[in-house]
Amino acid sequence: MDRMTRVLAALALATTLGVGLTACSGDDGGGSGDTAAPMTAEEMTTTNSAPVPGPAESTVHIPVAVADRWEELGGQQGDLGRVTGPATAVEGGSVTDFEGGSIVLTPAGRAFVVQGEILAAYDEAGGPAGELGFPVSDETTTDGGWISAFEHGTIAFLDGRPVVEVP
């Protein structure tokens, strides 16, 4: 399979995955159909927070949804390691940095992991405030690398380099 075919296949997968996640993102699983109003970035990063171990044995307060996701992934023993500081509010959501990557909290309250070379490319593209917007899924594997889907595009890590696609 040539490089372009792999990129197109990865984009098709990410688009399909992103559409599916976006379509169900308003459903809290409760079945009532009612959705709560999204919290403000300040509420997500301050009032609804949980203490987690930070640098130099300190405690850092991060959004509860981020703390829950971090715990699901193994907490400080997981791939992300310790939090490096408090969440940064951005575009109605937040970004919390860890030793091994970041967890991006969307305005809808969903927490997605962005890491490695994809995180570096995402940061370079402006992160959630850039043209890609917020993640709509976690990174997935694809033929020859990894891919992350965002509101307005994808970043694939193929053949040892990131490929940013914005339609």
Rank of each mutant, 00 (worst) to 15 (best):
D2C: 04
R3M: 12
R3W: 09
R6C: 00
A9T: 14
A14R: 08
T15Q: 11
L17D: 14
L17N: 15
G18N: 06
G20F: 11
T22F: 08
C24Q: 09
D27N: 13
G29A: 07
G29S: 07
G30L: 12
G31S: 01
T40I: 02
S49P: 07
P55V: 14
H61E: 11
V66T: 12
V66N: 04
A67P: 03
A67M: 05
A67Y: 04
D68A: 14
W70C: 04
E71Y: 10
L73N: 02
L73H: 01
G74M: 04
Q76P: 11
G78F: 08
L80I: 04
T84E: 13
G85Y: 08
P86R: 13
A87V: 05
T88Y: 05
V90M: 07
G92S: 06
S94E: 02
T96E: 06
T96S: 13
S102D: 04
T106M: 09
A111C: 06
Q115L: 09
E117R: 09
A120W: 00
A121S: 13
E124K: 14
A125R: 10
G127A: 11
P128I: 01
A129W: 03
G130Q: 04
G130F: 00
E131P: 05
L132V: 02
G133T: 01
P135H: 00
V136I: 15
V136L: 13
T141G: 14
D143P: 05
W146Y: 11
S148H: 00
E151L: 08
G153M: 00
A156W: 01
F157E: 05
F157V: 00
D159R: 03
R161Y: 07
V166Q: 11
P167H: 10
